[in-house]
Write a protein that binds this DNA or RNA. Structure first.
Length: 485
RNA sequence: GGCGGGGUAGCCAAGUGGUAAGGCACGGCUCUGCAAAAGCUGCAUUCGUCGGUUCGAUUCCGACCCUCGCCUCCA
C-alpha cells in the first residue's frame, strides 16, 4: 500500500504523490524562539519528524525545511525586559530548541532558515503584492494584505484567489472577536493582516529598511517567503499545529498565491502554493489544557529533569494518531518506560542469539516490515504500527523461549526491526549501560561466589549494596545480568 | 453565533456493517535459595444516551447529552 495522508484542503485521506518524484519538499512551521519549547510544541515537531521518516521509508528523497521565527512581538518584549540584543537572545533559544529536538531523536531539518536572514525575500514578496494591488500601505505606515481585493482579483496561474481554503470560513459570518477591536487598527478591514509592521519606539533597534519605511515583517509573510525561497513556489507538503490552519496558513496561501510565481517557475502549470496540508492536533496534559497555573506545563527539559529519557517522551508522543487530541500524562510516561524496557529486553536477547551468526547480513524478515508499513501508510496510524511491533515482540519472545530461534533467524529479525526503527527511532542507545563500574562488577562477582557457597545472607547483602550504587542484578540462566536501576 | 474534533475496559489508545488491536496497571503460572527481572497467560457479551435502517451496528442515519479546539499573529 502506498502512502496515504490526510489533506486539510480536501479533508480526506488521499494518496500522497510528490510533484517531482522521488523528491519531496517538506515545510514545517517551526518555533518562535523566545522561550524553551513545551511538550505541546514538540508533539508537532515529533509529528513532523514522523512524516519525514515515513516519506523516506517509502523511498522518497525528502528536503525538510523548518523555519525559525526570530523576530516577533513576544521576542521584542523579552528584549525590552532583559535588555539583551536580538541575536544573542534568540541564539540561546535556538540552541535549546535544537538540543531538545535531538533528545527526542528528531532528525535535524535540512534547512532551518531564520526570519531575520530572509528579510529581502519578504520585501520582494510584499512588493509583488503591492504591484498587484492586493496590499496597501495604511496611515500607520504598516503594509496590509487586502483580502477583499484579493478575492476580487483576476485569476493568475497558481492562484485560486479564494480565501478560506483550509477552514471553511465565510468572511461575512465572522463576528468580531473580543480580542481584537477594529478601531485599534488603521487597516481597511479587520481581517486584513500585516505584511510589514511599521517601526514603533518599543521596537528599539530591531528594524529593517524597506520601500515602505523602517519596520519589520509580519509573521505570516515569513513562512511564505522562506518556504518558496528554499523549496520553490509549490510545496509538496506543509505542516504545522492545528491552530495554525487559521489564520496563519490561510494567510500564507493568500500571500503566496497572490504573489503568484514570485520566481516565475510555475512550469506553466497551475500548481497551488501547497499541494498537501497536514495539521497535528494539540495535546492535553493530565487531562487539562496545559497551563502554568495548573502546574501541568512541561518543557522538554522539565521532563528530562524528572529523569525521563527523550525516547520515552518520543514514544508517548508517538503513541496516538496525530489528528487526535492526545492526553499526555506522567503516568503515561512511566508506562512508556515499561513498554520500552520490554522492547529493549527482546532486542537484547535477539542480539545475544544473533551474535554467533557469521554469514552475510541477512535480509529483513518481511512479516514485521510489511505489516508496519501498511499501518504507517494508512495516514500514519502509529497506534496500529505499535500493535504490529508488540505482536512481533511477543512472537520473538516465544520463539526465543522455545529455542526455535537460530542465530541467522535472530539476525534477520533484528534487521527487520532496524528497518522499522528507522521510522520509530526508539531503539536503545547501544552505548547506554555498556560500562559497569568496577565496584559494582566486583560485588556482582562476589555475590556469585556467595551464592555458590549457599551464603544467601551475604548474597542478599551484596545485592543491596549493588542497588545502593544504582544498579540491579538479575539472575538469568546465563548468569547474573547488571542493569542500571 | 460560525466551523471542526472527541466520547471504546482502572488509565492511554486502534478499529470494523458480522460480532472488540496494542500498551500500561492488575490477577494466575513458569523460572528462582528468596527475590527481582523476564517470559507465558488471563482480563470489555461491550464501544455516551435514545430512536431508526438492516438478517445483523460499536461501526450507517436522526435526535439528544457531555467534552475539547479554532474564529486574526497560541504547536
Amino acid at each position: 500500500m502506498s502512502l496515504r495522508l490526510h489533506n486539510t484542503l480536501t479533508r480526506t485521506v488521499e494518496p500522497f504523490v510528490p510533484a517531482t518524484p522521488p523528491r519531496v519538499g517538506l515545510y514545517c512551521c517551526g518555533p518562535t524562539v523566545y522561550d524553551f519549547g513545551h511538550v505541546g510544541n514538540f508533539r508537532t515537531f515529533v509529528f513532523a519528524d514522523l512524516v519525514r521518516r515515513a516519506l523516506a521509508f517509502n523511498g522518497l528523497v525528502v528536503t525538510h525545511v523548518m523555519n525559525v521565527t526570530d523576530v516577533e512581538d513576544k521576542i521584542l518584549r523579552r528584549l525590552r525586559e532583559t535588555g539583551q540584543a536580538l541575536r544573542p537572545f534568540t541564539a540561546t533559544y535556538i540552541d535549546a530548541f535544537l538540543s531538545d529536538l535531538a533528545s527526542l531523536r528528531c532528525l535535524r531539518p535540512h534547512h532551518l532558515p531564520r526570519a531575520t536572514d530572509h528579510i529581502a525575500d519578504m520585501v520582494r514578496l510584499i512588493s509583488r503584492l503591492m504591484e498587484r494591488g492586493i496590499a496597501y500601505k495604511a496611515p500607520d505606515g504598516s503594509v496590509y494584505f487586502n483580502i477583499e481585493q484579493y478575492r476580487r482579483s483576476e485569476r493568475w496561474p497558481g492562484c485560486a484567489c479564494r480565501y478560506g481554503q483550509l477552514v471553511h470560513i465565510d468572511p461575512e459570518q465572522q463576528r468580531a472577536s473580543g480580542r481584537v477591536s477594529a478601531d485599534e487598527y488603521d487597516k481597511d478591514h479587520v481581517a486584513d493582516f500585516a505584511l510589514w509592521k511599521a517601526r514603533v519606539p518599543e521596537d528599539g533597534d530591531v528594524f529593517w529598511e524597506s520601500p515602505w519605511g523602517q519596520g519589520r515583517p509580519g509573521w505570516h509573510i515569513e513562512c511564505s517567503a522562506m518556504s518558496m525561497a528554499l523549496l520553490g513556489d509549490s510545496l509538496d507538503i506543509h505542516l504545522g499545529g492545528e491552530d495554525l490552519a487559521f489564520p496563519h496558513h490561510e494567510d500564507e496561501i493568500a500571500q503566496s498565491e497572490g504573489a503568484g510565481g514570485l520566481r516565475g517557475d510555475l512550469h506553466g502549470k497551475h500548481l497551488p502554493f501547497v499541494r498537501h496540508w497536514l495539521h497535528g492536533a494539540h495535546l492535553l496534559v493530565e487531562g487539562r489544557k496545559m497551563s502554568k497555573s495548573l502546574g501541568n506545563y512541561f518543557t522538554v527539559r522539565d521532563l528530562l529533569a524528572k529523569g525521563f529519557d527523550g525516547r520515552e517522551v518520543r514514544f508517548l508522543l508517538l503513541s496516538a494518531h496525530y489528528r487526535e487530541t492526545f492526553n499526555f500524562t506522567l503516568a503515561g510516561l512511566e508506562g512508556a518506560r515499561t513498554a520500552l524496557a520490554r522492547l529493549d529486553e527482546c532486542l537484547g536477547k535477539l542480539r545475544e542469539r544473533a551474535a554467533s551468526h557469521g554469514g552475510p547480513a541477512p535480509a529483513p524478515v518481511h512479516g514485521l516490515v510489511e505489516a508496519f508499513q501498511e499501518a504507517l501508510n494508512d495516514d500514519l496510524n502509529v497506534s496500529r504500527a505499535w500493535a504490529v511491533v508488540f505482536d512481533w515482540v511477543r512472537d520473538q519472545n516465544r520463539a526465543l523461549a522455545s529455542g526455535a530461534m537460530d542465530p541467522a533467524a535472530a539476525a534477520a529479525e533484528l534487521a527487520a526491526f532496524g528497518a522499522v526503527d528507522a521510522v520509530l527511532a526508539v531503539a536503545p542507545d547501544p552505548a547506554a549501560g555498556a560500562s559497569v563500574p568496577d565496584e559494582v562488577m566486583a560485588r556482582a562477582h562476589e555475590r556469585v561466589a556467595a551464592k555458590k557457597a549457599r551464603d544467601f545472607a551475604r548474597a542478599d547483602a551484596l545485592r543491596a549494596e549493588i542497588k545502593a550504587l544504582g544498579w540491579t542484578v538479575e539472575d538469568t540462566p546465563a548468569g547474573p545480568k547488571l542493569k542500571r536501576a
